[in-house]
């Protein structure tokens, strides 16, 4: 097993154990985005976990707009050294820094913006990107959104702005799993054709397999070497909600419900403990 795969397996165990412990949270999308988070935090982004500073000068900034998949973010932040792995036990408990949805209220290192109410992250990421441009800081800003989240109008206000104003130090990633709470995105409120929409708003569009690290490397290399560097970039990332746990895949059912004791055990058997459970 290569290194990133091994980390992702542990992250998926963390996610399941966190939501199981409090019988609440959002495992489906968290499992689906685990590989992306591992790739970003263990291979792509530049950051300094030991001296976290809100301003994040001369480091890459990551914003999670679909804040409900906080378990995967918390696990990856802890596993990459922003805070102690043992703090994952406090997820969603009273007085915890690991709020149900990410917040800056309690100063959890690694998080710069509250999210949860959908559709706001891309605007914030644009602001952070503009701030970097003003400061002459050449690091990049990344923003992950859900595909269902694209139903929010503010996303398209932001998309229009970044396209028109050439915010080219920004990479948006859409978690395209075609699932949302009430069912398939394509049934609830279709967002396709995604590539055409973003392209029409002035973005360079890339498609990526969200469970294949080699494909991630291919796409991000392509982004780095893109001849036309004056546009914002968006990656339509194909994922499977619930990835890694057989009975959680192929359905929207695990968007926001936790496994019971028996389901947890079944799930954990499918995921190797590679870094030691917290």
């Amino acid at each position: 097993m290569d290194n990133l795969k091994a980390i992702a397996s542990q992250v998926r165990r963390d996610i399941l154990r966190m939501v199981h412990a409090v019988n609440s949270g959002h495992p489906g999308g968290s499992l689906g985005c685990a590989d992306l988070f591992v790739y970003l935090y263990f291979e792509r982004l530049s950051f300094s976990p030991q001296n976290f500073e809100m301003n994040g000068e001369n480091e890459d900034l990551f914003f999670l707009s679909n804040g409900h998949i906080s378990p995967v973010w918390y696990s990856v932040l802890a596993r990459s050294g922003f805070f102690k792995v043992n703090e994952l036990t406090t997820f969603r408990k009273i007085s915890s820094r690991l709020q149900g949805h990410p917040s800056v209220d309690k100063n959890l290192p690694g998080i710069r913006m509250a999210s949860g109410s959908l559709g706001q992250g891309l605007s914030v990421a644009i602001g952070a990107a503009l701030s970097k441009k003003l400061a002459g800081d050449r690091c990049q800003v990344y923003c992950l959104m859900g595909d269902g989240e694209l139903q929010e109008g503010q996303v398209w206000e932001a998309a229009m702005y970044a396209g028109h104003k050439s915010v080219n130090n920004l990479v948006a990633i859409v978690d395209y799993n075609n699932r949302q709470i009430d069912g398939d995105v394509s049934n609830v409120m279709g967002v396709m054709p995604l590539a055409d929409k973003w392209s029409a708003f002035g973005w360079n569009v890339y498609e990526m397999d969200g469970h294949d690290f080699d494909d991630m490397r291919r796409v991000f290399t392509q982004i780095d070497n893109e001849p036309s560097q004056n546009k914002p970039r968006v990656i339509i990332m194909k994922t499977e909600m619930g990835m890694g746990v057989d009975f959680m895949m192929g359905t929207h059912k695990w968007h926001g419900s936790a496994p019971n004791d028996e389901q947890l055990q079944t799930a954990l058997l499918q995921l190797e403990e590679t870094l030691g459970d917290y």
């Binding site: 994040g56 990421a125 644009i126 952070a128 503009l130 701030s131 970097k132 932001a158």
Partner: peptide, 16 residues
């Protein structure tokens, strides 16, 4: 696009 404006403003504070 006032919603976007508030978000961009919030983001611009990151960096001072």
């Amino acid at each position: 696009a006032e919603a976007n404006m508030m978000g961009i403003a919030a983001g611009m504070t990151i960096g001072g």
